[in-house]
Amino acid sequence: MVTVIVDVEGAVRVLRDAKKLLILVGSRLDGDILSTVVKLAEGLGAKAGIAATGNTAAPLREMGIDAGKEWTAEVVSRMLHSEGDKPDLLVFVGFYSFVLSGVLSTLKHFASCKTLALERRRFENADFSLSEMSKEAWRDALMRIAEGVIR
């Protein structure tokens, strides 16, 4: 069952507890929120990687971030099949809900990693999820989470 994260500290704890995590940047992200996510990844240091899904590789490169282009389905497939050093936490931000619902369902039922949805709505199939909020509140929450992991 999903654990709904009601405060910024909850999200920060989940991110800090992960040994290795991958932040998947969804195709809806751009502008200042994308910068916040980069800040979040940087705050988490070497244990965090960024996977640029959708068309986000280009804006990330423009920001000087060499995040590899990834296909969400391939990331999911790797979590199911590949051996080796896999992330124990996948973090999703900026996805269309009709994409993320499906992705989280696959991971919940067939992969061993945990998932955290840093979206504007609650995703029942995530292990941890933010809940419904306005765009402004979401932007603010992401910013505070990014700051929280540095502290």
């Binding site: 389905a73 391939e74 497939s77 790797r78 099949h81 590949s82 269309y96 009709f98 994409v99 619902s101 499906g102 992705v103």
Partner: peptide, 17 residues
């Protein structure tokens, strides 16, 4: 695409294997 995830079944190769 883009509502493809609703298909609920995909046939994905594993390039690494």
């Amino acid at each position: 695409g883009p509502h493809g995830w609703k298909f609920q079944r995909f046939l994905l190769g594993n390039v690494e294997d």
